[in-house]
Nucleic acid binder design. Structure first.
Length: 727
DNA sequence: AACTTTGGCGTATTGA
DNA sequence: TCAATACGCCAA
């Protein structure tokens, strides 16, 4: 019996090259058999030798299944069929192999036995400017590799080309000797690997970094983080997974949205790997080269701290994806880089393949209504309770119990049910297991199942999902709205005052029940259908209700902000400060009124005494500056201030990165924001001072919105206070 | 090159 | 000056 599969690669010839764990924890390489396959809409009139075609059971446009005896024969066959939609085959090939064999990577391999190697490079650029691997004067100073806590630091031996070439060869040798399953690094894709590739190419050193003597492959790719797309150069190292913690960190922050930055240093502090106050060696970009020459010990300490922090980030962020790779027929790197649709599709396709059932094509999805959202009151309220329905949409799906229309095999609901059972089992284990490593693993599993379960509803409403069903998704949200409305009515009958409701939860004020929310919970929860569970989620001294999806809570210790109006990252810091002061004031946390701060700003702004960094707004680029520039050159529109600012910067930011900018004074023919925007990094108080009037106007706008909550003193003329103080 | 959904707030651009 | 519209960012 072979040990766990911990590496997989299908080469160009169609050979399946596997790496298995051996009894002693080593790695051994093997070649496995595989028959490439595809689904077809029609039976080809001519079937070449080496290809078999079977007719499938059930309804669905893909009614035939073709197998090839080798990839070569199969490729020829598929190109002969042409590019029409008659042909559909799961990619990459590694997924197809796993699916065909019902195999998974890392089966029975604990996370602790995964061979993980951290990688970081240090480079020198002439004049201390921004590194650019294409420049002759640039140089790799050191390559750091760390595996199982042991550092392997490779240093440039002298300042000539031959030495850098030798360093590149040493890097390849060391990597192959360590033979990791996973290569981890912070910003690997956009920096380290791409830089190494360019230097290797210069010295004609092939990037043989993979298993089975294979070279790394590079190609442009994109990664979606919530609403943002990030551009990066993807690197595939055959037989290994490349994991970029820079991407994982950003993905993590989608839900939390509380990180101050995504660089290694910020992330390490945020995740508690490095204590903010404790020592770690740090070198600024321009100091690195000098330290390399004059203080080697310090240079090495810096590199090793980077490796340690990278390992720490992956310790926390990788297990979820590791568990995904054990769940889906997919590579670990794919699990970390791709969305949930392809993964769910693979689970379906695996069942359809083995059942020899005809496959559907993605269906049309008509626009449909979502969750119920309402802000009932505006102002400050006391004795606030929060209730929500546990896993509303998955519960409703199971309650409805209907499979997607095209799922003729009936895979969806049983799969969802099984995943939920698994999740509950691992959630329990995460609390009760004796061994801490086992608890951690159980936690990772339950987290990855939770993400998966929650995305089943979204999958149904997604037009690209092969087994999607917009009507079923619409049915789920419709029942969700009815349920929430029924809860609001029930709470109202109990004498509570609804404040804010959104999708699956409700905030309400009730002095009577504030001390005994469980009592209230039982009275209301009785009316709910089987399988739908209402939970008491928390109690608050005070709540500031602003508008729908925008509110602040105070539990006696901490303030929680919700909503883009109150906590958006793009907002100018000085306005954010006003809002924070307002909320602390309204919630009774601080006696200081923002009106004092406003008076102060109004005094200092005209003299430009407020630092520009307090005024600059930030925005992440939804487009690369280059493509924006091209579009504008062709007379495109609309113009955008953030992109205009990005174009000013010598080190052009890429799509998905943040740009901060401020506004300079109006001039003739230069009144629009985009014409006056200037990158914060290029602030020049003499040549390009900021425009105080613009920022004074922002304060007026702020008062327009929030003045009512501060009473008559703050109001523009003709308005009266509407904020109420109740209960 | 790649994609889970809808709902809501606030700001800027554009064109009249 | 005012609308329609697009976009960034966020809640669930």
């Amino acid at each position: 019996m072979a040990g766990a599969l911990c590496g997989l690669w299908v080469d160009a010839a169609g050979r399946v090259l596997c790496t298995h764990e051996t009894v002693g924890g080593g790695r051994e390489e093997r070649v496995a058999a595989w028959r490439p396959f595809a689904w077809l809409r029609v039976k080809p009139s001519v079937i070449p030798s080496g290809i078999t075609v079977e007719e499938l059971k059930g309804e669905g446009p893909f009614r035939f299944l073709a197998h090839g005896e080798s990839l070569e024969v199969f490729d020829e066959f598929s190109s002969a069929l042409g590019k029409e939609a008659a042909f559909d085959t799961p990619r990459p090939w590694e997924s197809q192999f796993l699916l065909q064999r019902r195999e998974r990577l890392y089966a029975d391999l604990p996370f602790g036995r995964l061979r993980r190697c951290q990688l970081d490079i240090e480079v020198a650029s002439p004049g201390g400017g921004f590194p650019d691997a294409a420049r002759v004067g640039d140089r790799v100073l050191a390559v750091g590799l760390r595996q199982d806590g042991i550092n392997h630091v490779l240093l440039l031996s002298s300042a000539d080309d031959a030495a850098e070439k030798k360093l590149m060869e040493e890097f390849g040798d060391t990597l192959r000797r360590l033979d990791p399953d996973v290569i981890e690094g912070h910003n690997l894709f956009k920096f380290d690997l791409d830089y190494l590739r360019q230097r290797c190419r210069r010295h004609k050193v092939p990037c043989v970094w993979g298993r089975h003597g294979a070279k790394a492959v590079f190609r442009p790719s994109r990664f979606k983080v919530a609403e943002r797309w990030l551009d990066f150069t993807r690197c595939d190292v055959p037989g290994r997974a490349v994991i970029d913690t820079y991407l994982l960190v950003q993905q993590h922050d989608v839900t939390a949205r509380e990180m101050t930055g995504y660089g290694l240093k910020d992330a390490a502090i945020y995740f508690g790997i490095t204590d903010e106050t404790s020592e770690r060696t740090y070198l600024a970009g321009e100091e690195i080269q000098r330290a390399f020459q004059e203080d080697p010990a310090r240079f090495r300490a810096y590199l090793e701290d980077d490796l340690r922090e990278t390992a720490g980030l992956a310790d926390q962020l990788l297990p979820t994806y590791f568990e995904q790779a054990r769940t889906f027929p997919t590579l670990l790197q794919e699990a970390a880089l791709r969305g949930v649709t392809s993964k769910i599709d693979l689970l379906f396709l695996e069942e359809y393949y083995h059942a020899r059932q005809a496959c559907p094509a993605p269906a049309e999805v008509a626009p449909f209504e979502g969750g119920f959202t309402r802000s009932f009151r505006e102002g400050v309220f006391r004795h606030v309770l929060h209730f929500d329905v546990a896993s509303l949409y998955p519960s409703l799906l199971l309650h409805i119990g209907r499979n997607p229309r095209q799922d003729t095999l009936g895979v969806f609901i049983p799969l969802l049910r099984r995943l939920r059972e698994y999740r509950l089992r691992y959630k329990h284990l995460a609390r009760t297991a004796a061994d801490p490593a086992e608890r951690a693993e159980a936690h990772a599993r339950q987290t990855s199942f939770k993400i998966l379960i929650n995305s089943f509803y979204g999958y149904l409403g997604f037009p690209g999902a092969r087994f999607g069903d917009g009507e079923l998704a619409a049915e789920v949200t419709r029942r969700g709205r009815e349920l929430l409305q029924a809860l609001i009515d029930a709470f109202t009958r109990e004498g509570c005052v609804p404040l804010e409701a959104d999708t699956d939860g409700i905030y309400l004020a009730s002095e009577k029940h504030h001390q005994e929310p469980e009592f209230l919970l039982h009275r209301v929860a009785n009316a709910l259908p089987e399988g739908i569970e209402l939970e008491y989620d928390g109690r608050y001294q005070a709540m500031f209700c602003y508008k729908a999806k925008n509110y602040a809570l105070y539990d006696g210790e901490r303030i929680t902000l919700r909503g883009s109006a109150l906590r958006s990252r793009g907002i100018e810091p000085f306005l954010k400060r006003l809002t924070d002061e307002l909320i602390r004031h309204l919630l009774g946390v601080s006696p200081v009124s923002p009106l004092d701060t406003i008076a102060d700003f109004r005094r200092r702004l005209p003299r430009r005494e407020v630092p520009v960094s307090e005024l600059a707004r930030g925005e992440s680029l939804s487009q690369s500056p280059e493509s924006y520039e091209r579009l504008m050159a062709e007379g495109g529109k609309p113009r955008r201030a953030a992109l205009e600012a990005a174009l000013q910067l010598p080190a052009r930011p890429r799509m998905g990165e943040r740009v901060r900018y401020y506004l300079t004074a109006k001039a003739k023919g230069r009144t629009a924001d985009w014409q006056r925007a200037r990158a914060l990094a290029l602030h020049d108080p003499e040549q390009f001072p900021y425009d105080p009037d613009h920022y004074l106007g922002k304060i007026d706008d702020w008062l327009e919105r929030y003045g009512v909550f501060l009473g008559a003193a703050a109001l523009p003329q003709g308005e009266s206070a509407q904020g109420e103080l109740a209960f």
